[in-house]
Design a binder for these strands. Structure first.
Lengths: 222, 222, 222, 222
DNA sequence: TATGAATGAGTGTTCATTCAT
DNA sequence: AATGAATGAACACTCATTCAT
């Protein structure tokens, strides 16, 4: 992992400004995408809020679609990094699940904009639309990674089991949070954070137990 | 539930044609929204595929947004109707859950276009966009209804518990199916239907049990 | 050849309006392309001058490039038709050349806008630019046709000779008129019409004679 | 004609670099204008290919239009210089024509980029566009010079005759070469160089003869 | 009622030019 | 002098919607 402070110290003032501009565009785009959606947010809205000329956007991103892709990659990679750290700290297979779920919930409660962005991207991915090309692979890579990370929790089973488990974790978390944020607002959901984490954990664990006679078996923690 | 044949018999030929045109537009719109998404599908695509003049669309629906709303209402109400029938058939509180979940899964496997449409609408609902106005209430009403329908499964608890249960059923189903359809295709998911139904059931039931010490308690079936 | 009056009588009012709009767009585009050039003339300039909405343009032509192509085809085909008529009237091979040249000069003096449009298109055709695709073939077809039309004037020689002759006729006419219009204005050139026709005729005929020992030989008229 | 070596020796290193940069920009611009045309070639394409910063372009040329003007002037003056040298070498009035035509053809076969650039400029000159201002005078000066240079070939006639002759030489050469390059490629035309030179010579000389009874009369060489 | 020609505000994107470094 | 980040006016093209027929 990079140490930004040091890295940037090595850059010239101009280079630092470029990095800063890049960041500002991404930040503003994330905000606007979550306020108006990837479709209704215009490139000009982004540059205006970022206090930049419209042309500047295209110096940093090839197209509107490109910035969505970068945000998706950044978001998923940040989520993966946090999950990775938490999973490493887990002392038993069972705790791995808790760690992954908790991290995921907390990530989305901290970044409801990503919750919505990912939701919209998942919607787009199912369309026969150019914009979807390539993004599917990005998302799939994330799930493959998550499957690998939670593999110890279902040790001894086939790889496909871990993938199903990863899918369930992702689906339940995104699904439940989206519904609750929708009807209760982000703040309301934040207050119920513990109960939601608990609920998802139970649901996912039930999945493993139930699968024992089938394809998923839980490796009991100590 | 209505009996179309009888109803239409009572209508004049002109009126029957109108109903038929209305239906064709809705059907075609559903198809195109799920192929290209509500944004990328143009009104003209719809009328063209429906073999109608472009102006005709606006004789039946005030706007593109309006047809989305009608589709949402129709879809949710069909889903509710099927769920209602299944739940009525359930002989015990526990079976109510199974019935609701199974119906939901089967509904979306039969109508993957609704799965995607609802997904897109949920995304839109979070936006500060005119198009979202009003739709939230439609969706909320459906969940309120579902909460009421599954209430017997958590009898004795507060209303909010049933609502949480309904939310979980809806969220888990939509979430899991969306992810699986995304990466495995609708056909692949259809083949795994049983295992997905089972998984969601387990997940939802675990939720109730876990909640017993908290807020959700399962009314055991006989 | 069609008889517009009759043909249009058969069309509905709406259809007649469409034909009329199509014509107006072509006419206005021709004018503007010759005033500002194919690059500096904007689509909006065209629709504005045609007193139409901007979108209307795209109902009639796929793109700006498309209308250029249509104008090129129309212009070349009109030129070919006039040349054809004149050549048919020619009573001897030698007169064929005169007829072709005279028609060409008169065509461009009557339509200086085509003189410029064709000039611009020839310039574009040499570029490695998408817009050039396809247009080359249109132009080439015209020259092939012209070669065939003047073939009798160089009877007995190879086909390539006729093609060279056609090229010379086209090149000398366009070249000379363009230079003269440039420095003397269209009106000035119109006044010298006879001398220019005569000059080009002499030049082209000299070409044939000179080629006699080589590849071009003139078929003497009576 | 300047003697670069000597001239540059007198310059400081910095000044020499400036001259070199200036030349590189002109060379690259010529190449790109002939590949993509003066409109489609971007300033950034030029500086990039010249391996310079974009801003540098504007240190050397006021605008994109300005570099076109410089290229036109340079090209025409180089062409004039070569023609001048050849014409001086001509031992008779008749040979002056041959010299002028041969030089012109060879110049364009050596520099097909100038053939295209001049063609595009001639097109632009007819437009009511700011970019055309001033360029017309540059082109006109060249033709006035050419008229003077070929004057001996039509000695005794009015000045306007020489101008018409100059126009014909320029028009026939550019016209014919453009058409042939267009359909046969620069390489193909180069192979037919002799026959094209011969053809243009005959055409131009026929012009003089024919004009004798009118306005152009050929001063016979020995 | 049904139509589809017409519309024009709005979109993503481009590019010549500027200017702080 | 050289740079290249920033700019914003312009442009080609789109599409939901209207309305005369």
């Amino acid at each position: 992992m990079m140490i930004p402070a040091q890295e940037e110290v090595a850059l010239s003032r101009v280079a630092r400004r470029k990095v800063e501009t890049n960041r500002r565009l991404l930040k503003v785009a994330r905000q606007l995408f979550s306020e108006k959606g990837i479709y209704w947010a215009k490139v000009e809205d982004i540059t205006e809020l970022a206090d930049l000329g419209k042309g500047t956007f295209y110096k940093y991103f090839e197209s509107k679609e490109a910035i969505i892709r970068v945000l998706l990659e950044e978001g998923l990679s940040e989520l993966a990094a946090e999950t990775d750290a938490a999973v490493r700290r887990a002392s038993s297979p069972a705790k791995i699940l808790s760690a992954a779920i908790t991290t995921r919930v907390d990530f989305f409660l901290r970044h409801p904009d990503y919750l919505l962005l990912f939701h919209q991207v998942r919607g787009m991915l199912q369309l026969q639309v150019d914009a979807a090309k390539g993004l599917l692979e990005v998302y799939d890579a994330h799930l493959r990674w998550l499957a690998k990370a939670v593999r110890p929790a279902v040790e001894g089973t086939e790889a496909s089991t871990a993938r199903d488990l990863a899918t369930a974790i992702a689906a339940y978390t995104s699904g439940l949070l989206t519904y609750h944020v929708l009807f209760e607002g982000a703040e309301g959901v934040r207050r119920r954070r513990d109960s939601l984490v608990h609920a998802i954990e139970q649901s996912v664990k039930a999945l493993i137990k139930s699968g024992s006679g089938r394809s998923i078996s839980l490796k009991r923690g100590k």
